[in-house]
């Protein structure tokens, strides 16, 4: 029963990728053929073009910047929520969830006017807006980690001579390392895969992978390029996810 659902779920995730992979390596693929008639490496070559390389770097910088801003803010928010009385903490949780409830387009349009008026550079403006969008994810990732966090680890450290800074560096942060990695990954995804905020607030100056993918899918008619860009957007997060999961998997296998 469980295995059947697992297979179905796996198929649900993997099946849409199969046409993409086929288009990526297809030279010619005409209907009603089930498989491409010819194969070509043109898609792979396109990925190494300067334009796509630059877009990949911009997307990575955007994702990393959002992660760098939203992860520590999420930790601070989770710590604050933890210290507040329950009624107050519920209110703060609702406020932090608000970006998820508001349609992104409306949120971005409102923020755009404000950011234009205060002359915020486009990259920083996009990072700021996306950090707000990522904050619910990072906060709740830390919130669940802190729920099982034992403050007495820090008390023991203090009685062993660690000052506040050492306790933070040698006890709190290592103990929250897994949650930090998960939160940063989610925040990175928000920046890496964003389209609307980058388009509207970046005002066309920020050329990221999703933007190039969007224009390729809308107007080029070049399915091979579109497939290559789609895989370029999907690939790095999967690699990151595998890197994050590897230590835990190794530990489980060792046990």
């Amino acid at each position: 029963m469980h295995l059947g659902f697992g297979v179905l779920l796996g198929a649900w995730i993997v099946l849409p990728l199969i046409p993409l992979m086929l288009w990526f390596v297809a030279g010619q693929w005409r209907a009603p053929d089930i498989l491409p008639g010819t194969y070509s490496a043109q898609g792979l070559i396109e990925l190494f073009s300067p334009q796509i390389q630059s877009a990949t770097a911009t997307s990575a910088a955007l994702g990393t910047s959002v992660a760098l801003v939203a992860t520590p803010l999420g930790l601070l928010a989770a710590l604050a929520i933890r210290r507040l009385p329950r009624t107050h903490s519920r209110f703060v949780e609702v406020v932090l969830l608000t970006p998820l409830a508001i349609p992104p387009f409306a949120l971005v349009m409102g923020a755009n006017v404000l950011l234009l008026r205060i002359y915020t550079p486009s990259f920083s403006a996009v990072v700021l807006v996306l950090a707000v969008a990522a904050l619910p994810y990072t906060t709740f990732m830390f919130r669940s980690a802190l729920a099982s966090y034992d403050d007495r680890f820090e008390e023991v450290a203090r009685t062993l001579g660690a000052n506040a800074r050492q306790t933070l560096a040698h006890v709190r942060l290592p103990l929250l390392a897994a949650a930090t990695a998960r939160a940063a990954f989610l925040a990175f995804l928000v920046g890496w895969g964003d389209y609307i905020a980058t388009l509207l607030i970046g005002g066309g100056q920020l050329r990221t992978l999703p933007l190039i993918l969007g224009s390729a899918a809308a107007g080029s008619g070049n399915e091979q390029l579109t497939a290559a860009l789609s895989l370029a957007v999907i690939g790095p997060p999967l690699v990151l996810l595998a890197a994050l999961s590897a230590p835990r998997l190794r530990e489980r296998i060792r046990r």
Partner: peptide
């Protein structure tokens, strides 16, 4: 941290990210 008074709790509270030796070496490192 400046009192020179160590406390052992009911729960051992060994730092899970450090091995046994580094747990015991913690105060000297600090």
């Amino acid at each position: 941290e400046e009192r020179g008074i160590a406390l052992v709790f009911q729960k051992p509270l060994l730092f899970p990210h450090l091995n046994v030796l580094d747990n015991v070496a913690f105060s000297a490192r600090m």
